[in-house]
Amino acid sequence: MVRKSIKKKSGIGVSVTLLIMVAIATVICSYIMNLGNRNIVKREYYDEISPYSFFSKIKYYITGDRIISFSPSKTKLDFSVSTSFEGLHSPNAILIHLKDHAVIMEKKSEERIYPASLTKMMTVIVAIENLHDINEKVELTNFMFQGLYEANASMAGFQPGEQVRAIDLLYGVMLPSGAECCIAIAEHIAGSERNFVKLMNQKAEELGMKNTHFENTTGLHNEKHYTTVKDLAVLLSYALKNDTFREIFTTFRYSTPPTNRHPDGITFYSTMYERLGDQNIINGEILGGKTGYTDKAGLCLASLAKVDKQEYILITAGAKGNHHSEQYNITDALTVYNSIRR
């Protein structure tokens, strides 16, 4: 009887021990799985905001017809956008919150496009960073005008033999999109447009614009001259940190001082503001921008806007139409900026 009692107690002890071991194993497995999940989340988080990436990526949550996005750097709701890029005229687009470079919305943002005159943003920032004195004089030569009129390039209105300050050429590049200003500033700085384009491609590489290659300073069509709206957003985000670039980019009207060919100077008007007219956004304003157009590139626009005291940049490209048709690049900008809610 004693032996049977001992055996019975031993059996109960073994059962209890097994139950305890199973419970402990379950807790340990659960902990390991949760730890693994946390590690995966952390890995995804750090991949998305890697310092090697210019932009922070955002997770999208779709509720009905609204696209709501969360920044990985914050735990609360950052933005909501009451529109979809699918409804835009532009097949390629990207919207960025400028302060933290958060990508709010994007549509085929890494697809190659032809940038047309959006190229001139790179021309201007590279020129600014390589000029010894923005007030130094530059003389335009006949050679600088060769082929521009034949290519139907936009012109600022300077003439061969005219002596112009470098800063006036930069305004001539950005506001009326003057091709002769691009060539003049490029030759002044680098000796030739080809050498200046090397500086543009070097800057693109420095900025991590991996899907960009420039062949000229003007944006005139060339099959090897391409970029993406995402790369252009990287460029504009960078360039706007430069005070001189920002001042030029956000100027509506600019008058040059008298020159040897224009005793009254020349007055430039921003092509974007001209096409925008009296239109603007509801809870803010469009601060500046650069338009672009070629038959191959379509209607393009790079713009800066302030909505509810926050700055955003929008790059759109490829909208059908021309300078004489409805300006779908402007229409798209108004639609997107008006949809931003915080």
Results as ranks from 00 to 15, higher is better:
residue 205 E to M: 14
residue 148 L to T: 14
residue 251 T to S: 08
residue 211 N to Q: 06
residue 106 E to C: 00
residue 168 D to P: 09
residue 268 F to I: 02
residue 169 L to R: 07
residue 120 K to P: 07
residue 86 E to L: 03
residue 92 N to S: 05
residue 271 T to W: 02
residue 267 T to Q: 03
residue 162 E to N: 09
residue 1 M to G: 10
residue 164 V to A: 02
residue 148 L to F: 14
residue 264 D to P: 00
residue 84 S to I: 04
residue 256 T to K: 07
residue 114 Y to Q: 00
residue 70 F to M: 10
residue 35 L to T: 10
residue 273 Y to L: 09
residue 151 A to V: 04
residue 75 T to S: 15
residue 17 T to V: 10
residue 124 V to T: 13
residue 66 R to L: 10
residue 269 Y to A: 04
residue 165 R to Y: 10
residue 178 G to S: 04
residue 189 I to R: 03
residue 322 N to M: 07
residue 65 D to L: 09
residue 91 P to N: 02
residue 152 N to E: 14
residue 249 F to T: 01
residue 25 A to S: 06
residue 299 L to K: 15
residue 245 F to K: 13
residue 239 A to W: 05
residue 36 G to I: 01
residue 42 K to G: 13
residue 69 S to E: 04
residue 214 F to S: 08
residue 75 T to A: 13
residue 250 T to K: 11
residue 112 R to L: 13
residue 131 L to D: 09
residue 153 A to M: 13
residue 240 L to F: 05
residue 292 G to E: 04
residue 232 L to I: 14
residue 118 L to R: 01
residue 114 Y to S: 07
residue 226 Y to N: 02
residue 301 L to W: 06
residue 125 I to D: 04
residue 342 R to M: 07
residue 15 S to T: 07
residue 153 A to V: 10
residue 145 F to W: 08
residue 292 G to S: 03
residue 18 L to T: 06
residue 104 I to Y: 00
residue 49 I to Q: 04
residue 58 I to K: 14
residue 121 M to N: 12
residue 76 K to D: 15
residue 190 A to T: 11
residue 23 A to Y: 00
residue 110 E to R: 15
residue 213 H to P: 00
residue 184 A to E: 02
residue 208 G to R: 12
residue 184 A to F: 08
residue 13 G to D: 06
residue 191 G to F: 09
residue 91 P to L: 11
residue 144 M to A: 09
residue 19 L to Q: 10
residue 171 Y to G: 00
residue 292 G to R: 10
residue 179 A to W: 09
residue 196 F to C: 07
residue 245 F to Y: 13
residue 62 I to R: 11
residue 22 V to F: 01
residue 293 Y to D: 01
residue 54 F to K: 11
residue 315 I to L: 07
residue 335 T to Y: 02
residue 102 A to G: 02
residue 99 K to W: 03
residue 322 N to C: 11
residue 172 G to D: 07
residue 111 E to Y: 04
residue 203 K to D: 01
residue 336 V to W: 08
residue 212 T to K: 02
residue 161 G to V: 11
residue 235 L to Y: 07
residue 11 G to T: 05
residue 189 I to L: 05
residue 36 G to P: 00
residue 169 L to M: 09
residue 169 L to A: 06
residue 242 N to W: 07
residue 162 E to L: 09
residue 137 K to W: 12
residue 153 A to P: 08
residue 176 P to F: 11
residue 280 N to S: 09
residue 69 S to P: 05
residue 22 V to K: 00
residue 123 T to P: 04
residue 217 T to R: 03
residue 86 E to T: 10
residue 67 I to K: 13
residue 255 S to D: 12
residue 251 T to L: 05
residue 208 G to Q: 04
residue 65 D to S: 11
residue 203 K to T: 03
residue 201 N to M: 04
residue 185 I to S: 03
residue 293 Y to R: 03
residue 127 A to S: 12
residue 42 K to L: 15
residue 212 T to Y: 01
residue 239 A to N: 05
residue 25 A to H: 02
residue 103 V to T: 12
residue 257 P to H: 08
residue 268 F to A: 01
residue 222 N to S: 15
residue 174 M to H: 04
residue 282 I to M: 11
residue 166 A to D: 05
residue 296 K to H: 12
residue 17 T to H: 08
residue 177 S to Y: 05
residue 252 F to R: 11
residue 64 G to F: 03
residue 75 T to Y: 12
residue 176 P to I: 07
residue 207 L to M: 06
residue 19 L to D: 09
residue 121 M to A: 11
residue 338 N to G: 08
residue 158 F to W: 06
residue 66 R to G: 02
residue 79 F to Q: 09
residue 84 S to G: 13
residue 89 H to V: 01
residue 100 D to L: 06
residue 290 K to G: 05
residue 282 I to V: 13
residue 155 M to E: 10
